[in-house]
Write a protein that binds this DNA or RNA. Structure first.
Lengths: 230, 230
DNA sequence: ACCGTCAACTTAACGCCGTCAACATAGCGG
DNA sequence: CCGCTATGTTGACGGCGTTAAGTTGACGGT
C-alpha cells in the first residue's frame, strides 16, 4: 500500500478533513448507496489509514452528518436563488418548490441521506426550513395566504418533500414520462390548496357536491382573471 | 446457549419462518433502528443458530423485504377499511389520507423501512397504490376531480406520504402540539388543491392577485354551501 | 544547536457482522 | 430396518467500526 506522500504541517490538519469529506461524498454518489460508504474505503481513497479518519470525525455517524451539512447548504443556496429571481410571492413559492424537487432529483443519494436517516441533523434542516417560512410570510403579508406561517410552510413542505421522496424511492410507480408534469401538478396543487385551505373556515371538510360547486366557481373566476391579464 | 427445544417436523419448516419474521419485527420496533436488526440477534431471540435463518430467507435483505411485505398488507387493510366506512368519494379520499398518515405514525420504523430503503419492494407498493387510484377514480366519476386517475393519485399520494415522512424523520421542526392539525391541513390542502388543479387549465400558474380573487370567491361560495347543508 | 513537546499519523488488535461450506440428526417412505 | 430428505448446527472467513499504543516530523524555548 502506497502511503500518503506528505504529512500535513501542524496547524493545518483540517486539510485532511476537507479531503475526507470530499472523497466520502464522491464515494457515495459513485456507488449510489450509503452501505458502500465505508470508513475504510474513504480512508483508502484519501490514501490514509482508517483510524486517521478519527482525527477529524468522531466516528462514521459524524462523517455522514458532516456530508449532510454540506448538502443542506447547497440546497439552501439553490432555493434562495430560485426565490430571489421573482417578485410575486406566490410565484416565488412555486419556484421554491420546483427548485427544491429538482435539487433532490439531481442529488438523490444525498437527499435520501439528508431526510431519511433515523436521526437527521436538526439545526441544518431548520435553517433551510426558514427559507420556506420567509416565502410563506411574504404571501401572508400579501394576503394570498392566511394563518400561522410556520404551520402553513410545514404543510406545503410536506407535499414538496413527498414529491421528491416518492420520485426517488419508488421509481416503479406509474410516473408520467416527463417528471415535470408531476412536479408542476404538485406545485399547483400546493398553491391552490394552501390558498383555499387558509382562507376557509377550519371546521369541516366540504362534501363532494359543495366542493365541486365551489371549485367550479373559483375555476371560472380564475380563468377569467388569467385571460384578462395575459 | 440453550438450544431450541423441539425441531420442526418435515413439511412444516415454515413455522420457523413465521417465528423469525415475528421476532425480526419485534426487534425492529423495540430498538427503533434497523441497524439493530441483526441476523444474529433475530436468530438468538428465536433460539436458533444464525445460519438457520438462511433456510427460510436468502439473506438479510430478503428478511427485511419479508418484514416490509407484511407491513404493506397491514397498511392496505387499514386504508381499505377507512375508505369503506364512508360513501361520499371526496370524504373517502380524506379518510384515506388520515388513515394512511396515522398508520405511518403508529409504525414509524416500519414505515421508514417501507418507503425509504434504497430498493423498496415495487409490487407491494403498487398494490397499495391501487387503493388510492380507486378512491380517486370514484371522485373522477363523481365529477369532483378530472384528469388521469394515476397522475392525480400520484400527486395526492406524494403529499400524504410527505406529511408522514417529515413527521417521522424531522421531529425537531416546529410542529403544532396536536399532530392532527397538520394532518387535517394536509388532507384539506390536498382535497382543495387537487380539485382546483384538475379543473383549471394547465397552462399557467395564476399570479397572487388572481389567485386571491378566485380563492375569495370560492371560499364564500363554499362557506355558504357548508352552512346551508349543515 | 539541541531537545522536549505535541500534532499528525500508523500499527496492531478486538469484537461484531453477514455469509458459506461442511457436518449432524430426526422422522418418514420403501 | 434402511436410506433419503428436511431441518437444523459447527466452524470458519473476510470485512466492518472502533480503540489503544506506538511512531514521526516540525516547531519553540533555551
Amino acid at each position: 500500500m502506497e502511503a500518503r506522500r506528505t504529512r500535513a504541517k501542524p496547524g493545518d490538519g483540517a486539510r485532511l478533513r476537507e479531503e475526507i469529506l470530499r472523497n466520502a461524498e464522491r464515494l457515495l454518489v459513485e456507488t449510489g448507496s450509503e452501505d458502500a460508504l465505508t470508513l475504510r474505503a474513504v480512508a483508502q481513497r484519501t490514501r490514509v489509514t482508517t483510524p486517521s479518519v478519527y482525527l477529524h470525525f468522531s466516528g462514521k455517524e459524524a462523517l455522514i452528518e458532516a456530508v449532510c451539512l454540506r448538502v443542506w447548504d447547497e440546497l439552501g443556496d439553490r432555493v434562495r436563488e430560485a426565490v430571489g429571481r421573482v417578485t410575486d410571492p406566490i410565484i416565488a413559492l412555486g419556484e421554491f418548490g420546483r427548485a427544491y424537487v429538482h435539487f433532490a432529483l439531481d442529488h438523490p443519494v444525498q437527499y435520501r441521506l439528508l431526510m431519511m436517516r433515523p436521526s437527521a441533523s436538526a439545526e441544518a434542516s431548520k435553517a433551510c426550513f426558514e427559507h420556506m417560512v420567509n416565502a410563506v410570510t411574504a404571501c401572508v403579508e400579501n394576503g394570498v395566504l392566511k394563518g400561522n406561517p410556520d404551520t402553513v410552510a410545514l404543510t406545503m413542505w410536506t407535499a414538496v418533500h413527498g414529491c421528491a421522496a416518492l420520485l426517488i424511492t419508488q421509481p416503479a410507480l406509474p410516473w408520467p414520462d416527463d417528471v415535470n408534469e408531476i412536479i408542476d401538478a404538485t406545485v399547483r396543487m400546493v398553491g391552490f390548496g394552501a390558498a383555499l385551505n387558509t382562507h376557509l373556515p377550519r371546521r369541516r371538510v366540504p362534501r363532494s357536491a359543495e366542493l365541486l360547486d365551489g371549485v367550479t366557481v373559483a375555476a371560472e373566476r380564475l380563468k377569467a382573471l388569467g385571460s384578462k391579464k395575459k
